[in-house]
């Protein structure tokens, strides 16, 4: 499923940032650009998480999660190797989907996404960020418009209905990062997704 990966990622002690302040800074800038310009595909590096996590999902977890964020591992991502890696490098408490600040897994494993926190009317920021593992990321597919997009862009979303439903909740809603190999793209709740 994930194309490029070194073979030696099984050990939980391996695969974190070797120079965290610098690597996390560079990776965050890519994630910021990805989220601020929905649909643009960026590359990140520095993490070597265990199967089945992609490099980009591993990077996103290292950059954004820590002992103060509740993490949900969905489907195949919820395996001993990933749990150990998270415990060693991140320390995020694992939780069920409904309580998660971050969740990682394939789109199918994360479903139904209506389970995830969408924030409160007075605190819309208290919502989940989904890290959705996909096979590939290309700028084909449903059209995206909204903040961060000059006119329109396109991204191969796994579906449109869930994202349209999420947009209808604005300013509530979850936010999404798509990861494939070392590539990452963002889809904040503010993005309008074309119906297909």
């Amino acid at each position: 499923m994930i194309a490029t990966r070194p073979a030696d990622t099984a050990d939980a002690l391996e695969g974190g940032f070797t120079e965290a302040p610098i690597q996390s800074a560079r990776a965050f800038r890519e994630i910021l650009e990805a989220m601020a310009r929905p649909g643009t595909i960026r590359r990140v590096q520095g993490a070597r998480p265990p199967e089945p996590l992609s490099v980009a999902a591993g990077v996103a977890l290292l950059v954004l999660t820590d002992p103060t964020t509740r993490l949900h591992l969905a489907g195949r991502a919820d395996c001993a190797e990933v749990r150990d890696w998270v415990a060693f490098h991140i320390g995020a408490p694992l939780t069920r989907a409904e309580e998660a600040d971050f969740a990682v897994g394939t789109w199918e494993a994360l479903h139904p996404v209506s389970r995830f926190r969408i924030g409160q009317p007075d605190y819309p920021d208290r919502s989940a960020t989904l890290i959705v593992e996909v096979d590939r990321l290309v700028n084909h597919g449903p059209a995206l418009t909204g903040p961060g997009i000059e006119t329109a862009t396109w991204l191969n979303l796994p579906e449109t209905a869930a994202f349209r439903a999420n947009r209808a909740l604005f300013p509530l809603g979850f936010d999404t990062l798509f990861t494939a190999g070392d590539r990452i793209a963002g889809l904040p709740r503010s993005t309008r997704v074309e119906a297909i």
Binding site: S24, R189, S190
Partner: peptide
Amino acid sequence: KRMIRRAILKGIAV
């Protein structure tokens, strides 16, 4: 920095 970065991303999203 992680805490601030999370806040920035939520700010971008809303």
